[in-house]
Amino acid sequence: MDTPLSTSPERRRFNVADFTERFGLVLVWIVMIAGFGILLPGIFLSWMNFSIMFATQSPGAVLALALIIPLTAGDYDLSVGATLTLSAVTVGVLNAVMGLPLGVAVLAALAGGVAVGLVNAFFIVYVRIPSLVVTLGTTSVITGLVQWMTNSSTIGGISPTLVNMVMRGRLFGISYAFYYVIAIALAIWLVFEFTPLGRRILFVGRGREVARLSGIDVGRVRVGCLVASALLSSIGGLVYAGLLGAADPFSGLNFLLPAFAAAYLGATAIIPGRFNPWGAVISVYFLATGITGLTMMGIPLWVTSVFNGAALILAVTVSQFVRGRQETDIG
């Protein structure tokens, strides 16, 4: 679809446009950082500010990374926020309430994530119900289960070991949480770009019938992607529980929309037109930078919701104009 057939000068022009498209978001991000740096001298451009931002946004970043896997294969997973919450409260209930060792609680949380992925996959792939409907349903089921498990109460007293492994432990001044995000993004990038599996996922997302006729086991790929998404969401839940030192039964769902925004915004950068991990991670931090800067300037928080939505629409619009308003393969 991007096969260059052009002559050399055209190719050079294309590359300039290509570069702008690929790194436009990064450039806007840098300009934004510089702008806030000027407006908030001595406060915004501090290592402390960025290290905190990198750590705090980790649960949302993990969720955005979880989302791009089924999205690449052509499925929506609306249950990632609920799965994140399920994982966090599983650790809370097993570790803080029932007193089980942290390792057991973590394994149970991850197993819960895999179970959610398998349930989603069964209804989506085997029963052939649209992914939007199934994951909306499982979100509701999980939300109810979480309220039952927690008695609708926040659970405090999670093992300090988890808090140390996520928030208090630092490398170069940044909490470990951020490095988990980078590790996950790196793993997804390697799979997407350098393995036959990554290509198969992409083919399945671009056209299921074509992929099937090419000999790809489409069902298996989709199941794998949905399970991977749920597993990563449960890792996001562990990060969230480690960041708070508590398990909150309600707030995880709020990560859903920002994560979708970051996934779609990320699809306009680095590898435009494709959901990609680095684009998603950059988008999370791009949005967080804007919100942090605006908050530091004392602007009311409702503005941040406007910023989130406007940034997404604007970025996708700019990207579309750079591409000559082509039809995209996404959504």
């Binding site: 905190i52 705090t56 707030s251 990560f255 942090t292 908050t295 530091m296 928080l301």
Partner: peptide, 15 residues
């Protein structure tokens, strides 16, 4: 609360 309090308080503490 879950998504905005923490970053807002961090920003307020830094500034």
């Amino acid at each position: 609360w879950g998504t905005k309090i923490q970053p807002a308080v961090q920003a307020a503490l830094l500034s």
